[in-house]
């Protein structure tokens, strides 16, 4: 896959949808493309994070450690992204990401991420929207769960 094809994929990632073409090319060029084999871990819960990933192809499982072992809480597909919380908050990874099938990602290092966000405001806004949606989603699930329990 060459740079131009990658840019085509990045265009369809919501996070980058408002980013102009030249910048998108820069992201693709400076980002590291990483392939993970099935079952390989991209990052492990509790470890420090230094990069975020955008999924260019394949499916990844989101696993959370529970007393009874890892529990899959979600799946991420093409165009999804993860790992931003750890680098935004300097916190350990809050979940383990494991390649479900052969997984192709664009790895954006912490440094680069901050640079891109500060140089491309539209990206920051898109990221806020995504994070807000996730909070919304979590809240909804929480209230459903409490309602369920109450019932």
């Amino acid at each position: 896959m060459n740079l131009n094809e990658e840019v085509e994929i990045l265009k369809r990632v919501p996070l980058f949808s408002k980013v102009e073409l030249a910048k998108l090319k820069l992201i693709a060029f400076t980002g590291e493309r990483m392939t993970f084999g099935p079952g390989q871990e991209v990052c492990h819960q509790g470890e420090p994070g230094d990069a975020m990933y955008v999924i260019l192809g394949g499916v990844a499982d989101v696993l959370i450690d529970t007393p009874t072992g890892p529990l899959q809480v979600a799946q991420l597909k093409k165009n999804g992204f993860f790992g931003e919380t750890a680098i935004l908050c300097d916190a350990p990874r809050n979940a383990t990401i494991q390649a479900n099938e052969s997984l192709l990602t664009l790895k954006i290092s912490k440094d680069m991420f901050y640079r891109l966000v500060s140089e491309i405001p539209s990206m920051a806004i898109e990221m806020m929207r995504e994070l807000a949606l996730r909070v919304e989603d979590t809240n909804r699930k929480l209230s459903e769960a409490t309602a369920h329990k109450a019932a």
Partner: peptide, 16 residues
């Protein structure tokens, strides 16, 4: 095309 908009002290220059 890629690097024109960046400030000269941007480390991306050096790395990439």
């Amino acid at each position: 095309e890629l690097f024109s908009g960046l400030s000269p002290d941007n480390p991306l220059f050096e790395q990439y």
